[in-house]
Design a protein around this nucleic acid. Sequence first.
DNA 1: GTCTATACTTCGATAGAC
DNA 2: GTCTATCGAAGTATAGAC
Lengths: 193, 193
Amino acid sequence: MSDTPPTRDSKTRTALLDAATRLMLDEGYAAVTTRKVAAKAGVNQALVYYHFRTMDELFLAVFRRGAEASLQRLDDAARADDPLRALWQVSSEPQNSALTVEFIALANHRPAVRTELADYTRRFRLRQQEIIERVRDDRNADVPEGPTPAAVTVLAAALARILSMDGAIGITDGHDEVLALVEDYLLRSSPRP
Amino acid sequence: MSDTPPTRDSKTRTALLDAATRLMLDEGYAAVTTRKVAAKAGVNQALVYYHFRTMDELFLAVFRRGAEASLQRLDDAARADDPLRALWQVSSEPQNSALTVEFIALANHRPAVRTELADYTRRFRLRQQEIIERVRDDRNADVPEGPTPAAVTVLAAALARILSMDGAIGITDGHDEVLALVEDYLLRSSPRP
DNA sequence: GTCTATACTTCGATAGAC
DNA sequence: GTCTATCGAAGTATAGAC
């Protein structure tokens, strides 16, 4: 506890996180090595270990930054005119899903990442679910048919990810049809003006 | 062309493919190294290079073996009593989705894998789509509502994968609700006896 | 087909000067 | 905070004996 910890909001630290994120998206998590990250950030390799003591901590820092941003966007969506549509826009941000898939693969051999990913996923879905329920209650409507809020959160995550994964390998067949289903749901659930 | 190529159906070759597959499922694709694969198969490291000249070829061989098996199961499903339910069973085999996710992550930095994965995905979905259309035509029914066959193939892949990915990190919330939706679709589309 | 031995590369991580 | 220098481990791949 006598060490001076590196600054939480340092220019270099941010550059390293940006570099690691870009590497994950462009070349996959296996391309995230201290050397490549440092090179992309324009600093020395050893400096990575000053800001993040291990690779695990670097990955966790990348993950947490993205997770906090996503939860923040969720709260913004809750206050949008059409919250359900805003929720879908947050979920379907392509970068979001692409990064998540990399972290899921990473979680396979990094227990610390798995724990963090599971915690975040639960929080994200639960918050999403609350928003969906609130929208439903606000219209104190007769919402008989259609999937439950819990199912909707899983469906949204599933669709967002398949669109992202397919896109990564150049597949788009059936995507328009699926997006039409989403649009259909949003229109059926949207506030009548 | 003067080299004697290794036997296509060799005991060792199969053991190596099994070992690589298990490693991918248990520890992620990054754990698939010639040393670990050889150790798990109980043979020498250099032997991997006799059966597969490079890591790329090893990964492709693992992929192709699984892909051929899946396409075969698709054909079997086409002849089942309830083809749609059989299709869902093939898609939702947990191993299937888990392996696919690893290959998607791999495709990110192995172009050869990406090409192969894209080709296979197209063939799989197209074949699935044909089966769905045939089932629909057989009952020459009035199938007005519900998603198109192309959308169904994407939905099935999306749901199978999210269930698998969630399961890998210990998340099951909302899964029952989603499975109930699938069951609902299958019952609505199943042959009335 | 299977092995030993080894060349070469890259990785994570640390020590210590500035 | 940032750098140079370096260690040891692990990776891909090859040569050659059996």
